[in-house]
């Protein structure tokens, strides 16, 4: 566990030593801030709903972008060989990378607490919806991150990793939105598999273990796939 944390710190430093983390945080805050203030001042809606509605779209691009380098770059530069001959297990390496993405995500989310505090000061804040929405955002982001990391382990080209990660995440994002085109039973399954569907549930303030379990198991599945890919030691 100790080594996992050392890896996480290295990854975080790599994010913050370069422009990546700042660009992601600034753009994320700018977009959500614009949607938040737009709803507050122009439409007189004191709600975080607008923020929660736009954030999944942002994650759709940002999470694959944040994770595209995680293994692809290590493979290209050959550092994967150094990393995987250190006395650590493969899963510790993957966990270290996932944790660093999770922490960056958490920071982005925590920074948007400004919106929630503003609302709480102005009047009534829907506490259930806010907590559920934030929890949903975090789970959704982690899931996308885990998928992005897997996509990154499949190739040594970061662009390919990004497109691949984006394609998988976009498919998950779309699933519950295209149920009209498929027969009933299949529609139900697709709805359950859709990433956004569970987020909508949480955003309503209903914190259901099924929704949490969905994200946790999908993250776990992507993690397992990454372990499997790395075990084959791709060149």
């Amino acid at each position: 566990m100790h080594q996992t944390w050392i890896l996480t710190k290295r990854e975080l430093r790599a994010y913050f030593d370069g422009p990546a983390a700042y660009v992601v945080l600034c753009v994320f805050l700018a977009i959500t801030g614009w949607f938040f203030s737009n709803a507050l001042f122009l439409q007189n809606v004191a709600s975080l709903r607008s923020v929660f509605s736009i954030a999944p779209f942002i994650f759709l691009f940002f999470m694959p972008a944040l994770t595209m380098s995680s293994f692809a770059e290590e493979r290209r530069a050959g550092t994967l060989e150094l990393l995987l001959t250190l006395p650590v297990r493969d899963w510790q390496v993957i966990l270290g990378k996932l944790l660093s993405v999770a922490l960056l995500l958490l920071l982005a989310i925590v920074l948007t607490f400004v919106y929630a505090v503003t609302l709480a000061l102005l009047g009534d804040l829907d506490l259930g919806g806010t907590v559920g929405g934030y929890l949903g955002l975090f789970l959704l982001g982690i899931t996308y991150g885990a998928i992005g990391i897997w996509a990154s382990s499949l190739t040594r080209n970061q662009i390919v990793a990004f497109i691949l990660g984006f394609a998988i995440i976009f498919l998950l994002f779309l699933l519950d939105k295209i149920t009209d085109f498929v027969p009933g039973q299949l529609g139900v399954i697709m709805q359950y598999l859709g990433a956004d569907y569970h987020f909508q549930n949480l955003m309503r303030g209903v914190i259901d273990t099924r929704d949490i379990l969905y994200y946790v198991s999908l993250t776990g599945f992507a993690f397992l796939l990454t372990t499997y890919t790395l075990a084959k030691r791709p060149e």
């Binding site: 290295r10 790599a14 030593d17 370069g18 530069a77 050959g78 550092t79 060989e81 150094l82 001959t85």
Partner: peptide
């Protein structure tokens, strides 16, 4: 390893 991979950043 061959060609000395290092973290460039």
């Amino acid at each position: 390893p061959e060609s000395t991979p290092l973290y460039a950043d």
